[in-house]
Design a protein around this nucleic acid. Sequence first.
DNA 1: TATATTTGCAACCGAATAGTTTCATAATAT
DNA 2: ATATTATGAAACTATTCGGTTGCAAATATA
Lengths: 107, 107
Amino acid sequence: MRRDVFQAIADPTRRAIIALIALQAMTPNAIAENFNTTRQAVSKHLRVLTECELVKQEYQGREIYYSLEIEKMKEIDKWLDQYRKIWETKFNQLDELLTKMKTQAKK
Amino acid sequence: MRRDVFQAIADPTRRAIIALIALQAMTPNAIAENFNTTRQAVSKHLRVLTECELVKQEYQGREIYYSLEIEKMKEIDKWLDQYRKIWETKFNQLDELLTKMKTQAKK
DNA sequence: TATATTTGCAACCGAATAGTTTCATAATAT
DNA sequence: ATATTATGAAACTATTCGGTTGCAAATATA
């Protein structure tokens, strides 16, 4: 099964899980308490997140603590970078235009 | 049908379309030439992209030029921001640790 | 040892998704 | 006027997705 980060963050529940475990590791049970779905459904989401390495597990007895693999989030940032260049250029163009207008207004 | 940006960028073909029209507006026909799918399939992708406002249309006779709505891309960047804070903090912590080690090494 | 808890996995289901083929509409060219 | 071109929409299909229920394995507790 091919999993990629973009597919993983497409689902709103998974984005919520990511937000939940971003700052502290949590067990599937604890995570599931925050949603209106079954624990098993959350488990499936965690599986997807694990498969694309957005999440890491830490075994502690019979419990498994899930936490965010923040490095993987940078992948999205990296993808965004090409577009960031575009909107920054557009901003610069607007900036230049405004400077031009100011200069002309002084005349 | 509820469309959001995250669902839109989940599909690899749609991400490729976004990349294609990021710098210059293109017609559906021209876009479709770059893929191994039918023009109609591309048309459906453009519909999804239009519905979530990632793309804007410009009518020119019987042709429609599609181009990227760069502002919408910032929405993803905005979402990433909360996680950017985390990885920057982690980097700072590492930075502090390295400074500490250097200081101790001098002793 | 017997029981309870935590968890993942398999099987199933309905809805959504991405693709195809076919068709309708509007603009342009001959 | 007729043919061609550009496009979107509809109908259909196979596959994937997110959810459920039921079960098994491993660990903790009585």
